[in-house]
Nucleic acid binder design. Sequence first.
DNA 1: CGGTATCCCCTCTGATACTG
DNA 2: CAGTATCAGAGGGGATACCG
Lengths: 148, 148
Amino acid sequence: MEQTRAAKAAGGAKAVGAAAIGPCAAIPAEHMAFIREVLDRVGDKWSLLLIAVLEPGPLRYTELQRQVPGISQRMLTLTLRQLQQDGLVARTAYAEVPPRVEYALTPLGRGLHEIATSLVGWAAAHHDEIRENRARTISAQPGAGAHA
Amino acid sequence: MEQTRAAKAAGGAKAVGAAAIGPCAAIPAEHMAFIREVLDRVGDKWSLLLIAVLEPGPLRYTELQRQVPGISQRMLTLTLRQLQQDGLVARTAYAEVPPRVEYALTPLGRGLHEIATSLVGWAAAHHDEIRENRARTISAQPGAGAHA
DNA sequence: CGGTATCCCCTCTGATACTG
DNA sequence: CAGTATCAGAGGGGATACCG
């Protein structure tokens, strides 16, 4: 998420409008930036899953593939790289004859995992509530499920 | 996120492989589903921002546009709809001559806001650490920033 | 084993214009 | 004011094939 256009638009809006239309008090903009930053990293399809899988202990590349069903090599590598760059995951390559590489959570990564856990906790506590709401609201839409 | 192909692929992998290769113990799959479900809703560009803005109190459509600089009508409406469907936000339309519509956080929405706040807290506490790590790791890549 | 490179589709997001 | 509809672009993400 976060295309060039988006950044440009936001920047433009801020530069031109912030002083003119008045800033948003609720989102102090620093917070907004933090949200976006974390979300862009964590909001993708696999990061959190990888972190969750890595939490018990280090795993090898192939193990990760096995434990996260549905992920492609491409995405596994890509996500791992991202996590590495952010210092959430540490990569250790052993120069052995059969190459072995292990990925482990860093302390920082474990911290994020804590947050993720609370998120999961919330989700687990309310997911059926959400699903109910969703089903109800969707069927309440005009032209949907009414009769024809 | 979550294309049709992805769902199909995941389904196939699970149906064929789950029993064969063994399931993932670390991500009990229920949790995985929760993560994905919440993330898909919350991981987009605006949901959390909207929730954050709505937290102090109900706002009108135009107010929301003002408070979230950079959002387009399309995205505002779309995100609002999603939030509504999940029961995170309540929409109230007043049948007045100048149409007025107010959006407010539901208790469920406030709960999510709590989580988001902790996420923001974490981000605020570690964002510079992450940025450092990122800068360092990126410049450590072969051929990037080395000298040429 | 552990990755990289390529192709391609699909969804998200934004811009713009129009309606009740 | 509060939306909806259409157009267009960018990037994420999957499948496949190939390399060290």
